[in-house]
């Protein structure tokens, strides 16, 4: 039985730079961090792996420097890690990324459970997890706030529907995308660091995956960013006059205008 946890490196500052030509985010190693949602996926994977004696594996597609994020996952109790890195993977949208991750999972011989963060904070799409499930033909539950029970056949989870909580029992194999603060994320110990340093971290290229070049990287990406723009930041002030009731009514009208 195996749990795969997918992690992504994102810019650590809120100053994100777009490449003016490709209109994609410029990624550099310095100031890059683990996507905050993924930290919870890693913590869930490490805890469930330990509890059930399942193998855990961290998977990431990214530039070579991402190996430090994977090493960090190993220090937090994940058993082994695979970095998918190749120039051919560059420029991937969520679909091409999901195809690449899926190819890696197939090469591993599949997984019982795949955990992803609910979304990455740079692109904000929340698509990669569900698309990965689609590529592999696995079940998927998004925005999971609690993993309540796990057996060899199924997993019971609680998810946030936006206006309530939903409890689901899902057949394995399944992909779960987990919410922020869905569990504690313990820091590694000094001893954990030493263990993590000794765990295997492999690097796979497109050729290693035997991936179809039409499904990965820029070629495999149906999305085209045609134009990006910064929404104009408008500020207006409108004086409210009259009695408290009149002012409240005027305010209500303005709020309705904005939200409509």
């Amino acid at each position: 039985m195996r749990i795969v946890v997918c992690v992504k490196q994102v810019p650590g500052t809120n100053q994100v730079y777009l490449d003016p030509e490709t209109r994609s985010i410029i990624r550099e190693a310095r100031h890059a961090v683990l996507n905050p949602y993924d930290a919870f996926a890693v913590a869930w994977a490490a805890a469930l792996g330990k509890q059930h004696g399942w193998e855990t594996l961290a998977l990431s597609m990214g530039i070579p420097a991402v190996d430090s994020l994977l090493r960090d996952a190993l220090c937090r109790g994940i058993d082994r890690a695979v970095l998918l890195t190749d120039r051919l993977f560059a420029g991937a949208d969520t679909w091409a990324t999901a195809n690449t991750l899926a190819a890696a999972v197939r090469k591993l011989g599949g997984a019982s459970l795949i955990l992803c963060g609910k979304m990455a904070i740079d692109g904000d799409t929340a698509q990669t997890g569900p698309e990965l499930a689609e590529c592999l033909g696995y079940a998927v539950v998004t925005d999971v706030t609690e993993i309540q029970a796990l057996s060899g056949e199924q997993v019971q989870v609680c998810r946030n529907t936006g206006d309530g909580m939903q409890q689901l029992q899902v057949q394995l194999p399944a992909v779960l995308t987990v919410a922020k603060d869905s569990c504690e994320t313990p820091m590694p110990s000094i001893a954990g660091l030493a263990r993590g340093a000794g765990r295997p971290l492999a690097c796979w290229s497109a050729a290693d995956l035997g991936a179809d070049p039409g499904l990965i990287g820029k070629n495999g990406s149906p999305t085209r960013v045609v134009r990006t723009e910064t929404p104009p930041l408008g500020k207006q002030s409108r004086p409210l006059a009259g009695t408290v009731e009149q002012q409240a009514a005027a305010l209500e009208k303005i709020i309705r205008e904005i939200v409509s």
Binding site: L34, A39, P186, P188, I190, A191
Partner: peptide, 30 residues
């Protein structure tokens, strides 16, 4: 920094504490 941290672990053992009982914060979040 790995070396310095490992060294702390050895110092913990020398005073009878366990390097398991520690937190290492390497990210801004931690």
């Amino acid at each position: 920094l790995w070396d310095a941290t490992e060294h702390l672990g050895r110092r913990m053992e020398q005073v009878g504490a366990s390097p398991e009982d520690s937190w290492v914060a390497r990210t801004a979040f931690d």
